[in-house]
């Protein structure tokens, strides 16, 4: 494997007070691939993601971005590098339309006024780049969109800014079957465009449908990072529930 990982973490330690949440965690994500991050509740997935996104500072460990060692002290620094996190609650303003949400806080301006024309055109091209056959009108309010459409808007916002790593926290948690498929298709499309995508999910069907690699966590440890094609459904479930499966995972 000669490809440099977009994101490469080694020996990450993190504790809150006396509770160790992450213990010697290694994690990498490659451009053009979807890496599924799986683990039971409390395994440390969210903490790891928050460390990657600069929301938490880790206590020890090495953080490499595109091969360079970096220090990320705040969410802003992560964003500047091109790391975007789509949180589970999406953080969209329901009273604003799709274009307005996509550009929220980073509006295009022409002199004193907003450049609505440029923003609408860019929003349209980003959404069609995600193979969303445009959602009706990009001038619809978020309040009128379905859950899957909202998720797509949140993802589109993450990729609008030339980002390199996109982390999705349970994008399909609250969605129906058809909408989940829609979002998974978008996730796949992101990786095909060359981004490194990290997908947190509890749903094994989704993980196997869309991911190239699986990183399984168990009680604050990274127990295995494998290619999706090398493992079975049952093995991954075992890794999540007991931290080991045959050759894989923690030594007993």
């Amino acid at each position: 494997m000669s490809v440099t990982p977009a994101l490469d973490l080694r020996g990450i330690e993190k504790s809150f007070g006396s509770v160790t949440v992450l213990h010697d965690v290694a994690f990498s994500a490659y451009p053009g691939e979807v890496t599924a991050l799986v683990g039971d509740n409390g395994a440390g997935k969210t903490t790891l993601v928050k460390c990657i996104g600069g929301i938490h500072a880790f206590d020890a460990g090495e953080y490499r971005f595109e091969g360079r060692p970096v220090r990320i002290g705040s969410p802003r620094e992560a964003t500047r590098l091109g790391i975007e996190i789509v949180h589970q609650d999406l953080a969209l303003c329901e009273n604003l339309d799709i274009v307005q949400n996509l550009f929220l806080g980073r509006e295009r301006r022409r002199g004193l006024t907003l450049d609505e024309t440029a923003m609408e055109e860019m929003a349209r091209s980003t959404l069609s780049g995600l193979a969303v056959r445009t959602m009706g009108s990009v001038r619809q309010r978020i309040a009128t969109l379905s859950g899957g459409q909202r998720q797509t808007v949140a993802i589109a916002r993450a990729v609008l800014w030339d980002s390199k790593v996109v982390i999705l926290d349970e994008p399909a948690a609250a969605l129906g079957i058809a909408q989940t498929q829609q979002v998974l298709e978008v996730v796949r499309r992101l990786a095909d465009k060359g981004l490194a995508v990290v997908l947190i999910s509890h749903n094994m069907n989704d993980v196997f449908a869309v991911s190239d690699r699986i990183a399984a966590m168990y009680l604050g440890r990274m127990v295995a990072q494998v290619r999706t094609s090398d493992v079975t459904h049952r093995q991954v479930v075992e890794l999540i529930t007991s931290g080991a499966s045959g050759e894989l995972g923690l030594r007993r």
Partner: peptide, 17 residues
Amino acid sequence: GKETALKLADSDFATDR
């Protein structure tokens, strides 16, 4: 085998007028 689901999802996003 999941194409049907995909089509369903597409129809969720109405055509652009």
